[in-house]
């Protein structure tokens, strides 16, 4: 349990998707104009990451890894399908996003209208595929760890987008040099926040 909490906290603060790896920057810049839209996409990203990372973990360990197919038949034990992982992961993500969209639309119409246009966008959000690829690279040993990592990364992304959206709303009242307005100043602030987040480095529970 302690290990899970450690992975969770680590993926929020130290390996933050935005401040440490710049994943999902495109949608981060696009939706951070107001807190409300930021919240919407942030929740959707957290939701999808929490689902796709464990699913891709199962896919990776049961089918794609070298020798992972041995449960099917012992003669498959030297089959290595890991070169297929990109296409499998992205297919799972695209399918999951579609599925999540349908389920949410059916059972939680209020949430659906809040997330609305953001759900389909998620299939091409780098942080989702990035979550799965990091899971593959770091080789988590249980599905619990993979889930904690996915959930933590999503929360980290949500945190980052909320923080920048709040700052950008206040930024309207300040005098920014014209050429830096909009995109430029957002980049700089993200950089400064990244430096602030680096102070979390080395935290261990």
């Amino acid at each position: 349990m302690q290990e899970l909490i450690n992975i969770f906290v680590k993926s929020i603060f130290i390996d933050n998707m935005i401040f440490a790896y710049f994943l999902g920057m495109c949608s981060y810049l696009a939706v951070s104009k107001t807190v409300k839209t930021g919240m919407g996409l942030g929740l959707a990203v957290t939701f999808v990451l929490t689902i796709t990372v464990p699913v891709n973990y199962l896919l990776q360990t049961r089918i794609l890894d070298k020798g992972a197919l041995a449960w099917l038949d012992p003669s498959f034990s030297d089959v290595d399908l890991s070169f297929l992982s990109f296409i499998m992961f992205i297919a799972v993500i695209a399918a999951m996003v579609q599925l999540v969209e349908m389920i949410v639309e059916k059972f939680a119409p209020a949430l659906y209208s809040a997330l609305g246009i953001f759900l389909p966008l998620i299939a091409v959000n780098c942080s989702i595929l990035g979550g799965s690829l990091f899971m593959q690279e770091r080789a988590y040993s249980t599905i619990g760890q993979a889930t904690a990592f996915g959930f933590g990364s999503g929360i980290g992304w949500l945190l980052a987008v909320l923080a920048i959206a709040a700052i950008r709303e206040r930024l309207k009242y300040s005098h920014v040099p014209p050429a830096l307005r909009g995109l430029g100043i957002t980049f700089m602030i993200t950089g400064l926040m990244g430096i602030a987040f680096m102070s979390f480095m080395g935290i261990k529970l």
């Binding site: 401040f19 710049f22 040099p177 050429a179 307005r181 430029g184 993200t190 950089g191 926040m193 680096m198």
Partner: peptide, 28 residues
């Protein structure tokens, strides 16, 4: 070498480019 500096370098490039090409400046 730290990750955040990449953002700041890009911000400076954007700054420079937009001062050279004023048509790109964003309106609020």
């Amino acid at each position: 070498l730290l990750p955040p500096m990449a953002l700041i370098v890009v911000a400076v490039i954007i700054w420079w480019q937009r001062s050279k090409t004023p048509s790109l400046i964003e309106k609020d």
